[in-house]
């Protein structure tokens, strides 16, 4: 019975954090760095939660929703990875849990796609009420979709903790799989960063990426100092956008 109680607590944490993505408020409890420690706390190992959460945060830092695209579900990745590590009695270490999470993110993403599709039906129900001017009826059609996000996070976590303990505590990853997943985990962040790069980059602006890279890689500058420098560069750059093309003409006339 203790198992079921534990599973319910895990489901509650995972569900509330997951709900934050689409359900409402967007306070970012859905980020691995937050959901990881919370799940760790719920299952009795805060430090493991912190470690896995931080690890997955770096992997999914750049995966954002752009337009109508659904990114991999970093929240489920973190809640399930931490839960699996916590109930495995040490069979899964933090590194392995991070890579397990990376793989699970894509599975959870499919659940979200399913809900996006189901919600079309609710949208059409709302249309019927809208046509007769029943605003209360139309808005009621939003309540069920709004709760689906909770269950999308909660149900997988419940199942894992309630029924998966034997599975994850007997897990033995062969050395090959270990090498494979660790390597993939290290490279995974590049996908999100590439996505951000394509989204923000224009040929004119590429130098700023180069500057940021060199400052960090060669000079060891941290994120916050570089961000402040970046803000300064941004302010200088937009001032230039308003500057008239006059100075060039002046120089030419002087040359003449």
């Amino acid at each position: 019975m203790g198992n079921i109680l534990q599973a319910l607590i895990a489901a509650l944490v995972a569900g509330i954090c997951e709900w934050d993505i689409y359900g409402g408020f967007h306070v970012q409890t859905n980020r691995p760095v937050v959901v990881g420690p919370l799940m760790g706390l719920a299952l009795g190992d805060l430090s493991l939660g912190l470690e896995i959460g931080a690890g997955l945060e770096f992997v999914f830092l750049g995966t954002v929703s752009v337009g109508a695209a659904i990114p991999p579900d970093a929240c489920s990745a973190a809640s399930l990875a931490v839960a699996a590590a916590c109930i495995s009695n040490g069979a899964l270490n933090a590194n392995q849990a991070v890579t397990l999470g990376v793989a699970l993110a894509s599975v959870a993403q499919m659940l979200q796609m399913l809900i996006w599709t189901v919600n079309i039906w609710f949208q059409h129900q709302a249309d019927k009420y809208a046509k007769v001017g029943d605003i209360d009826g139309a808005c009621r059609c939003m309540y069920i979709p709004c709760t689906l996000w909770f269950f999308q996070g909660a149900i997988p976590a419940f199942c894992l903790v309630a029924f998966g303990q034997e599975l994850v505590s007997n897990i033995v990853l062969p050395a090959l799989v270990n090498t494979w997943l660790t390597l993939a985990g290290g490279m995974m962040a590049s996908v999100g960063f590439a996505m951000l790069f394509v989204m923000m980059n224009k040929p004119k602006l590429t130098p700023f990426y180069m500057i940021g890279f060199v400052l960090a890689a060669a000079l060891g500058m941290g994120l916050v100092p570089t961000a402040v420098l970046g803000l300064a560069a941004a302010l200088l750059y937009i001032q230039q956008m308003d500057a008239p093309a006059a100075p060039e003409k002046k120089r030419r006339s002087r040359e003449a």
């Binding site: 590049s190 951000l196 923000m200 602006l205 700023f208 940021g212 960090a216 994120l223």
Partner: peptide
């Protein structure tokens, strides 16, 4: 544009780190 300038510089740091 300001967002992209700042964002790209941060992205450079993230890539390296």
């Amino acid at each position: 544009t300001a967002g992209s300038v700042l964002g790209l510089m941060v992205l450079g740091v993230l890539t390296a780190s």
